[in-house]
Every structure is written in C-alpha cells, then in structure tokens.
Amino acid sequence: MSVSGHTLSPFTQFALILRRDLRLAVRRWDQVLQPLVFFVVVITLFPLAISPELSELRRIATGILWVAAMLASLLAGEALFRPDLEDGVMEQWVLTGQPLPWLLLAKTVGHWLLTGFPLVLVAPWVATALGVEFDHWRLMILTLALGTALLSVLGAIGAALTVGLRRGNMLMAMLVLPLEMPVLIFGAKALDFGLQGDVVTGPLSVLAAMLLLGLVLGPFAMAAAIRIGVE
C-alpha cells in the first residue's frame, strides 16, 4: 500500500502545527493580543485603585501578578480548540491516523507561545508599576514561564472537556480553577520568597514537577475528551 503516513516524523507534524498556528495568529493578531492586553491593563489599574504608594503595592504585588496571569490564561484558553472543532479541522485530526495526544500537545505548546510567553516577557516591566524592582526580572521570568506553561496545559484539558458544549466557557472556568489553585499558591510563593531574598528552589521544584506531569499526562486527557467532542 502506498500509504506513506508511517514514515512521517512526529517532529515534522509538531512543527507543522506550530507553523500553522503562528501563521493563523499573525492573520488574527487582535485575538492573540487580548490576554496580553488584559494582563497589562489589570496590573496597571491596581496602583490607581489602591494607592500609588509603592511600599504598599509591593506587599501585594506577587498576588496581583499571579491572579492576573491566571485570569488571562483562562480568557485565552477558551478559544483553544473551539475554532478547530467548529470548522471540522479537529475531526480531520482525529482521523489522521497519527497519535492525537501528540498533535494536541503541539497545539498547546503553540497556544502557550502565543498567549503565555508574551505575558512572561512583559511581566518584569509591568511589575515595576507595583513597586517590584526590575532587578528581579530573571526570577520573575522563570517562575511565570513555568507557571503560565502549566496554566496552558490545565486550560487545554478544560477546553478539550468543554469543547462540545454550547456554553462551555462558564463550565470550563469552574472545572479549571480548582486545578489551577496549586499553581497560584506555589507560583506566588516562589515569587514572594525570591523578592524577599529567600531560597526559591522549593516552590519552583514543585511547579516544575507539576508541569512535567501535566505535559506527560495532559495530552492523553485532552485526546480522550476531543474524541468525545467530535462525535
């Protein structure tokens, strides 16, 4: 049989999906920017609402940063699989005869690159509005990178589970938020420790371990949910 699907490298497929999503994002850039704008706006509103006193803001800065990151990721996660399901692309992915978890992992990585990573990059600048010195940029990028990646994986599981529902957004938030609590707790803790000059390896290791677990097991959960979603 001349079916050459067997010889296709999994990395070619991974790259193909990333390329497709990046290209789509360039053409629909307004949608991609939404979570980033949300993140920046929410954080810069706090000094206006609470007080411009930096010492006061500094105390709650980590909490604000993490809650904003979490809500931004929730906002972005909703549109992760829905467009592809609605136009029938997801159906074709299920039928490619290629490992679906792998394809969905690629999709999730692409999603993080477009919605999580930009947020990580601007965080050190935006945090200065909350009184966090720019010197902490390394720590901030590290913790937020781990944290937003984990939020993307968890969000993707929630998005896959609710993709077939007409009003899945609300349900998705309710499903995903409890799962994201540990990310919030350990992420904020790591950043807090770091800003006070303590050792951050503890909470960071927990975050990294959760991320690894999510990357390995998450795609299988997504694939199972998507198979039900396309029915």
Binding site: L24, D87, G88
Partner: peptide, 21 residues
Amino acid sequence: LMAFNQSILYLGHSQALKLDL
C-alpha cells in the same frame, strides 16, 4: 484504529478549511 484511519480519507459536511489561510 490508527492503521484504519491512515487508510481512509473522510470528507464531511464541514470542509475543515481555515478561512484565514
């Protein structure tokens, strides 16, 4: 399932086309 899926081409109602591509 994977071997079977590689052997079929299914074209459904929805054409699985991305409008922006």
